[in-house]
């Protein structure tokens, strides 16, 4: 029995990847939940908004690289991020003015907004594929590792390595910063409070002189920022492929719903819950068990509960269980 190696293996294969993935999901789910709280619909174009933001950032990265600009050990994409965010803000504000605002003035039913967002999804999806193509693309440069498995082994003398990729480190740091800023904004600033007020009680917000169009505009800008950051972090950590981003919709929705739609804290919790569940259930536990169990009980198979291809099933099962037993989510969400 060798608990130290078991802990290292668990950290390396489960905790670190799941934390990074959880942070990415949480940022995505925050965008979905803000749209739901303020505009009151489930935005099916969110995955494609993330894809667009990532694409714009990749574009800016390529330009920066061609000028010979680099960010030292960090990926150049971080420098390009503001351009990606600006482009995405532009796109969503245009979309809002050209598409959603019409239905807002009509006071259309939420389900109409959802269908409209399906149309927007098609357009953004097509746009991204036209502009950058449908292929898989890696755009991380700079140092690959903060600690590589080999360095760790040499440092500690343990049999198991522990690798922390630069992109994972960046994901966690950036996510913490972004979430802190978002909560400061929502809880401490006048505009942020007016957004919460509008989400809480639209009629009373109007009576208090809060301008709904301004609230909506600020919301879209924040959502575009969150979506771009989430998309870029995911792309740096794994890779960028438009279809994958579209598919991220399911775990992101699951995170937002499990946490309670409309509740930002819930979205973050949901993101990590979904990520940890996915990784824990699809991880092959053999290695960890070999270290922790007596030799006689050593497992023969991989001890993998579900094949990684079924990770969707994990988000989905959690979603259904939460909906059945707590329809407003684990944190109190809105139930419009």
């Amino acid at each position: 029995m060798d608990y130290l190696n078991a802990i290292v293996a668990l950290t390396n294969f489960v905790l670190i990847p799941a934390t990074a993935y959880g942070a990415q999901l949480a940022l995505g789910a925050l965008g979905v939940t803000l749209i739901y709280g303020i505009l009151r619909f489930s935005n099916f174009a969110h995955g494609d908004t993330m894809a667009f933001g990532t694409m714009a950032t990749i574009g800016a990265t390529v330009v920066l690289q061609s000028w010979g600009v680099s960010f030292g050990p960090l990926p150049t994409a971080l420098l390009a991020l503001p351009f990606g965010i600006a482009a995405t803000i532009g796109l969503v504000l245009l979309t809002d003015a050209g598409v959603y605002r019409f239905y807002r003035t009509q006071k259309a039913a939420p389900v109409i907004f959802v269908i409209v967002s399906m149309g927007v999804m098609f357009i953004m999806n097509g746009l991204v594929r036209i502009l950058i193509g449908p292929d898989d693309r890696r755009f991380a440069d700079g140092e690959r590792f903060i600690i590589s498995a080999r360095e760790f082994k040499e440092m500690t003398g343990l049999r198991e390595g522990l690798a922390l990729k630069t992109t994972q480190g960046i994901t966690i740091v950036v996510a913490v910063l972004v979430v802190a800023m978002l909560f400061y904004f929502l809880n401490r600033t006048r505009t942020g409070k007016s957004m919460r007020a509008y989400s809480d009680n639209e009629d009373l917000a109007l009576l208090s002189g809060i301008n709904p169009e301004r609230v909506v505009m600020v919301t879209w800008m924040i959502v575009a920022t969150l979506a771009t950051i989430a998309g870029v972090l995911y792309g740096l950590d794994k890779s960028f492929k438009p279809f994958t981003y579209f598919q991220l919709l399911l775990p992101i929705f699951a995170s937002a719903v499990v946490g309670g739609l409309g509740n930002p804290l819930g979205a973050i919790f949901g993101g990590f819950l979904i990520a940890y569940s996915e990784v824990l259930i699809t991880y092959a536990w053999k290695k960890v068990l070999v270290y922790t169990l007596p030799d006689a009980l050593e497992p023969t198979g991989l001890v993998q509960l579900l094949s990684t291809d079924y990770k969707f099933a994990v988000s989905f099962a959690l979603l259904v269980i939460v909906l059945l037993f707590k329809p407003t989510g684990l944190f109190k969400g809105k139930s419009v």
């Binding site: 489930s42 959802v114 919709l249 399911l250 699951a254 719903v257 988000s315 979603l319 909906l323 419009v336």
Partner: peptide
């Protein structure tokens, strides 16, 4: 469940 939730549930299935 609400319509959005049915949508997400069917998408998942």
């Amino acid at each position: 469940l609400r319509s959005d939730y049915l949508a997400i549930a069917t998408l998942g299935i």
